[in-house]
């Protein structure tokens, strides 16, 4: 009558094991036993190796080296991306890296800090490429003018930051000269004034910042144009475009004073002034 077919059912051993496993005290016992076992093996290891700490350290170093000397982690080359060869040499000299280096030991932030401390570097980007190359991308500062302060000639960039010193004005004749206290912080204005005087560039010696507030233009024949504090460019443009611009090329006057808006004050060449 009962034609039910047999179906899988647990064996006697499996049933008994499951019953044993369901006993709570046994599970707790196994937990505590395993904890004790782990702790005791740890203690045993310490006990065994306690007389041989140096050996243990050697093992540790060996293991450390084994990891550190993996070819995947080593950096073998320094690549500096910049136009200036001098800067490349300078960076190489400062970093003093001896390849190959492990990339774990390499402190990229520190390297970037060092490179940023170089005067002629505006900003830099340091990273490690996949192929084991340490890549340094440098943006240089561009010299726009020569600045003289206490007989030291220095190249400055647009923000007035001193890049490096030069020995002679003749080294960079192409750049305009700026003199005077705090003059380097108004480079932009000075350059614009230079631009207005593009027709007379050969005759100009440089610009002087007077009293940290206004500019004087000095010509090679000791003639000077005094610009006002406020709107110096506008008054100069007004002067150059007016019919009095010939005064620049005339040798009769030693000072052209544009500090007043409604008048131009001229000083004649006299013995007293030119020969102090």
């Amino acid at each position: 009558m009962n034609q039910t077919k047999s179906y899988p059912r647990p064996s006697k051993i499996r049933y008994r094991l499951e019953r044993v496993w369901l006993r709570l005290w046994l599970r707790k016992l196994i937990l505590y036993l395993s904890l004790i076992l782990v702790f005791s093996t740890f203690c045993l290891l310490i006990f065994v190796y306690s007389n041989d700490w140096i050996k243990l350290k050697e093992y540790k170093n060996h293991f450390k080296n084994y990891i550190f000397e993996r070819p995947e982690l080593s950096v073998s080359k320094l690549e500096i991306k910049t136009a200036n060869l001098d800067l490349v040499n300078q960076i190489n000299a400062i970093l003093k890296l001896s390849f190959p280096i492990n990339s774990i030991k390499l402190d990229i932030n520190h390297i970037q800090k060092i490179i940023n401390q170089i005067d002629s570097v505006e900003s830099s980007n340091v990273r490690i490429k996949d192929s084991g190359v340490l890549l340094v991308e440098v943006i240089e500062r561009k010299p726009v003018a020569v600045y003289r302060e206490n007989d030291d000639l220095a190249l400055i960039d647009l923000k007035g930051y001193k890049i490096n010193n030069i020995f002679s004005r003749n080294d960079r004749k192409d750049l305009p000269l700026i003199v005077g206290t705090e003059g380097n912080y108004q480079v932009k204005e000075a350059l614009e004034i230079y631009q207005l005087l593009s027709n007379y560039l050969n005759e100009i010696r440089g610009l002087i910042r007077i009293g940290e507030r206004r500019w004087d233009i000095i010509f090679k024949n000791n003639k000077r144009i005094k610009l006002p504090e406020k709107y110096p460019k506008r008054s100069l443009r007004k002067f150059l475009s007016s019919d009095k611009s010939y005064l620049i090329s005339s040798n009769d006057f030693v000072i052209i004073d544009l500090r007043f808006t409604n008048k131009i004050i001229l000083r004649k060449l006299t013995e007293d002034i030119t020969k102090p």
């Binding site: 047999s6 059912r9 647990p10 006697k12 049933y15 499951e18 019953r19 369901l22 006993r23 709570l24």
Partner: peptide
Amino acid sequence: EEVEKTIRLVVQQSQKMAASI
């Protein structure tokens, strides 16, 4: 034997559900 096996199965399953023996 078959009855034993089936009892074992139902007891095992219900023990598992109850989490106690």
